[in-house]
Nucleic acid binder design. Structure first.
Length: 150
DNA sequence: GCCAACGTTGGC
DNA sequence: GCCAACGTTGGC
């Protein structure tokens, strides 16, 4: 079992949206490193849901991988903002996983709180200049963040 | 709205 | 292959 963190702007897609829908294909990742992490994901992997570019920035809940990586259809869709002219159905560039809702924290674990927690030292999210939207998280860090949500 | 940090593109 | 220019991310 592996642990991850994925970012989303709540104006675009929030934890509440996921809770309503139950599950969702994680479309729109257009960064190779992030894509490669998604390809490593296994069924049942636990994923922290992080709200970026938001009023309240931080981890807001937990989701679970319910379908392993497959081509992101928005790369072929000319009308999509995620369209990629260099991607073909024979040679897709971008993949995604489907995630299912697990829990929403009663209160977000904010970025400020994450930064001030010494045991989270080394969390990739907190490293300088990290803009990755899909990030692996150590089990201990994952459990620590769950603890902070209580 | 600003801007630092980073990734990508494309000319050479 | 280098690197300047440009675009994007995301916190503040």
């Amino acid at each position: 079992m592996n642990y991850w963190l994925m970012k989303s702007e709540p104006d675009v897609f929030s934890i509440d949206d996921l809770q309503k829908k139950g599950q969702e294909p994680w479309t729109g990742v257009r960064n190779y490193q992030a894509r490669n992490f998604m390809k490593e994901m296994k069924l049942g992997d636990q994923v922290l849901f992080y709200h970026s570019n938001a009023e309240i920035i931080g981890v807001v809940g937990v989701m679970e991988v319910v379908r392993t990586a497959y081509p992101d259809p928005t790369q072929f869709d000319k009308k999509s903002e995620y369209f990629d002219a260099k991607a073909t159905k024979e040679k897709p560039r971008w993949e995604m996983v489907d995630v299912g809702f697990k829990t929403k924290f009663r209160k977000a674990v904010t970025l400020t709180e994450l930064k001030s927690e010494p045991t989270l030292d080394g969390l990739i999210l907190l490293q300088k200049g990290t803009r990755l939207s899909v990030i692996p998280v150590e089990k201990d860090h994952f459990l620590q963040i769950l603890k902070m949500a209580k």
